[in-house]
Write a protein that binds this DNA or RNA. Structure first.
Lengths: 127, 127
DNA sequence: GTGTTTGCAAACAATTTGCAGAATT
DNA sequence: AATTCTGCAAATTGTTTGCAAACAC
């Protein structure tokens, strides 16, 4: 059950996201897709984003600013949030596998993965 | 302007949180405080939690499960989220300062702090 | 008495969901 | 023809806010 069918809306969302590195929110995606599909609904955007996430084609990022953000880069990587403009950027470094071993050392549960969030001021805001 | 005045509700929230290591949500706090103050409102709980956060007396944690969580431990530390029961626990290790230096290396903005979230299965769920 | 805090209810924002019709296979 | 996907609107969930009364200093 649940064979995937093509949809131009979903395709358009994928295409839009693919060209982006700014981790847009569902609403931003919606606003942009609307330029090509004026009748698309926010619900469709949310549904497709959740679907794409479960297919492993996009990553959901919550940076605590209220709205979820979506990232077409599904490889493990860290993120940065600017405390001035609120932009979210990728940190170009490989996640430290050792961190998980270190954390496991004095922790009783089993650790399978981790994420990290860096905060500061982005280059644009520093001028 | 803005001299702080005593309030038994705020005191009760601080007291409740102080004895907790499970990072309760505003709603859980509300439910519990209501046992001593049946008339307290959810709005008051939120207002006080935000106030306490700005006073640096509690820390707000967003782990992406919809609701914010509150932690009386304001020292920097990492967190763990169980993918089975959703519980949030502290990771008993010192945050790696070096991580920020590593991240800075190939990043243009200035990094001031970071957090990390570990995922896996807690000891209780593993049985 | 002045200024802060509260309870209540209404407002908000982000996300989800039910349903009939449209699109895909 | 069978099933998935969409648009719309209503429903949910988490959080904030306006206001008059209560409380603290």
């Amino acid at each position: 059950m649940g064979a995937l069918k093509y949809s131009r809306q979903r395709e358009s969302i994928k295409e839009f996201l693919a060209g982006r590195r700014d981790h847009p929110t569902a609403d931003v995606i919606y606003m942009n897709i609307r330029r090509s599909y004026p009748n698309i609904s926010l619900g469709t955007v949310y549904r497709n984003l959740s679907l794409l996430e479960s297919l492993g084609e996009v990553q959901r990022i919550s940076c605590g600013d209220g709205a979820e953000r979506f990232d077409p880069n599904t490889e493990r990587h860290y993120h940065f949030v600017c405390r001035q403009c609120g932009c979210v950027q990728d940190i170009p470094m490989l996640p430290l596998e050792e961190l998980e071993a270190m954390a496991s050392e004095s922790f009783e549960g089993s650790i399978e993965s981790h994420t990290a969030m860096f905060y500061g001021v982005c280059s644009r805001c520093r001028g």
